[in-house]
Design a protein around this nucleic acid. Sequence first.
DNA 1: TAAATAGTGTCTCTCAGACAATATACG
DNA 2: CGTATATTGTCTGAGAGACACTATTTA
Lengths: 241, 241
Amino acid sequence: MTQEISEKQFLKEYDATAFASPLLTVDAALFTYHEEQLKVLLVRRGAHPELGKWGLPGGFVLSETDDSLEAAVQRVLRDKTGVIPPYIEQLLSTGNPTRDKRGWSVSICYSSLMAHQECAPHIVGVTDTEWVALDKLQNMKLAFDHGSLIEHARIRLRQKALYSIVPARALGKEFTLPELQALHEALIGKPIQKRSFRRRIEQANLLIDTGKKQSGGRRPASLYKLSSKADKYTFVRNLEE
Amino acid sequence: MTQEISEKQFLKEYDATAFASPLLTVDAALFTYHEEQLKVLLVRRGAHPELGKWGLPGGFVLSETDDSLEAAVQRVLRDKTGVIPPYIEQLLSTGNPTRDKRGWSVSICYSSLMAHQECAPHIVGVTDTEWVALDKLQNMKLAFDHGSLIEHARIRLRQKALYSIVPARALGKEFTLPELQALHEALIGKPIQKRSFRRRIEQANLLIDTGKKQSGGRRPASLYKLSSKADKYTFVRNLEE
DNA sequence: TAAATAGTGTCTCTCAGACAATATACG
DNA sequence: CGTATATTGTCTGAGAGACACTATTTA
């Protein structure tokens, strides 16, 4: 018969290493919009397993120093880009015995957005970190199940393009409406009616006119920045698929 | 200088227990609709930590026997209900050093739906497993962060009630439209226009008329079952919040 | 002024909201 | 028949789609 013990006693005697826990990593699919293309940040693996293959930035949760899963993924992203991206959301977790040859492993995957120019200085000349256009991924065999994770993230981001302006986080702090529309069109994969796109954004008051205009080109477009509620707002009616 | 080795050699020498990995559990917020109330399945903890408190059904991933995270949560749910619920989706993962007194721990939490009558036989007379109405949770101090997980799941389910008929999985295989509407209204927290609710479901062809009628009461309502596409379908326009 | 891009006017169509009207049970 | 619940008819209004039109820049 088991003797009853107090929680204090239990915790004192508890050995966290007694059971083999699966490997636990956080990974991040970081997207940006640059040169009219959607791009994702990839890292070339410098260690086994999957040595030499490209994959998502990620790493083990460091239980000594990470205060949360979010802190862990922020650390990973800051290490690669020099800053913490303005948009990070949890995407999904995958786990099974075969995705990593080292054994039963779990990845908690995040989806993130940032402006290309916020990151560029830090990865210029770095040969193992690169923005890769999503169109070029078809031919690449990525490490682990990272290809599938990116595809999940892309689908979710596409959905968001239909009912929010979250994708704007892939642009700089100030951007024009034609830029934002082009980004949404790239995500959705088909043209959007200019009138519909602008009307809904204006009615919901999601953007703040900076008063500035974009220089160069033909007629200059107004530069906007995101209002504080922009991340949380969802339209009641989606754009057409 | 590190000597280069093959992946095969690396894996041979790799020791998965060398690093202390966080504790890893899967938990499930299983909802149903019964007696005009939304209920969640809770389990009273029979072991430290948090002994005696109510919490979500869950458990460690068993790397010896579980083939995936989904398999692990299915096992947990089948152990408690006798069947695998017809709807299971991943909700979110939380992880930090303080949510479990045993140490850095991660919960991969799922949200699930099933009919009350599919489960009832298995938990009758079981004193440590109980359906609890969501309204009664305010006063309960649940184990770990399970109160917060349930709240997240509830918010997501409420959203789904606005743009899908996924909540129907909380009903039996056959159900009436008034039942389904009452469930959606319970989730949303306000009445829905009968006409709007029925029109959109009919137009999208989400239900199949079984030809049967509900007995008892006044005018009998038609009994429907879900069409195969019902889980995946989302309306382009949300109901009013 | 022509070309190119930014931004607006306005009509149509779909579908949710509102609520009245009808239909089918049971006692 | 009266009451309760299920189901349908129909009008209104919001907002997306379509597309023509105007505005502002540079060459």
